[in-house]
């Protein structure tokens, strides 16, 4: 029989907003985002850290939210795909993914964009090799990655053309 579980009351920051959620102690950050906060832009692709679809920023670092316990995020700052567009305008990375044809089925897209966000925060002028390495943990079955890398490289140097 299922036990009646204790739930944890957690407070953290998501996309700049202070939030509090009640989750079971074993809930993942992905569970908390998708189920408790209804931020369903972050996707569950495998649940084992192999596909990158659930990538979010946790205190500035890109992580697989399916492998993070919600409990350890108390007090943390989390950014999800829903946190990028502002004032009805796409974030530059999102716009680049749209314009460069980097999106087909779109299931990998939120994770790809969050991994790109982490890359560009760290290295505003990535080379193609840097971009490939930054996205090596994000699987895509549709695009063959070329247009995704084109989108990333179109943003290098703040959008100045990259050769």
């Amino acid at each position: 029989m299922p036990q009646v579980l204790d739930t944890l009351d957690l407070a953290f920051e998501v996309n700049g907003d202070a939030v509090s959620v009640k989750v079971p102690p074993g809930a993942t950050l992905l569970d908390a985002l998708r189920d408790a906060l209804e931020l369903t832009g972050t996707k569950l692709g495998c649940g084992e850290g192999e596909c990158g679809a659930c990538s979010v920023l946790l205190d500035g670092r890109v992580v697989n939210s399916c492998l993070v316990l919600a409990a350890e995020c108390a007090g943390a700052k989390i950014v999800t795909i829903e946190g990028l567009a502002a004032n009805g305008k796409l974030h530059a990375i999102q716009q680049a993914f749209v314009d460069q044809g980097a999106i087909q089925c779109g299931f990998c897209t939120p994770g790809m964009i969050m991994a790109t966000h982490a890359l560009l925060a760290d290295n505003p002028t990535p080379s193609e090799a840097d971009a490939k390495r930054a996205l090596e943990g994000n699987l895509c079955r549709c695009t063959g990655y070329r247009k995704i890398l084109d989108a990333v490289l179109s943003l290098a140097n703040g959008g100045v053309a990259h050769d």
């Binding site: 832009g41 795909i81 829903e82 990028l84 567009a85 796409l90 993914f97 749209v98 999106i103 779109g106």
Partner: peptide, 13 residues
């Protein structure tokens, strides 16, 4: 660009 791309890029899809 694909018509459905903005919704997919923002997590709204």
């Amino acid at each position: 660009p694909k018509l459905d791309a903005p919704d997919k890029a923002t997590g709204l899809a």
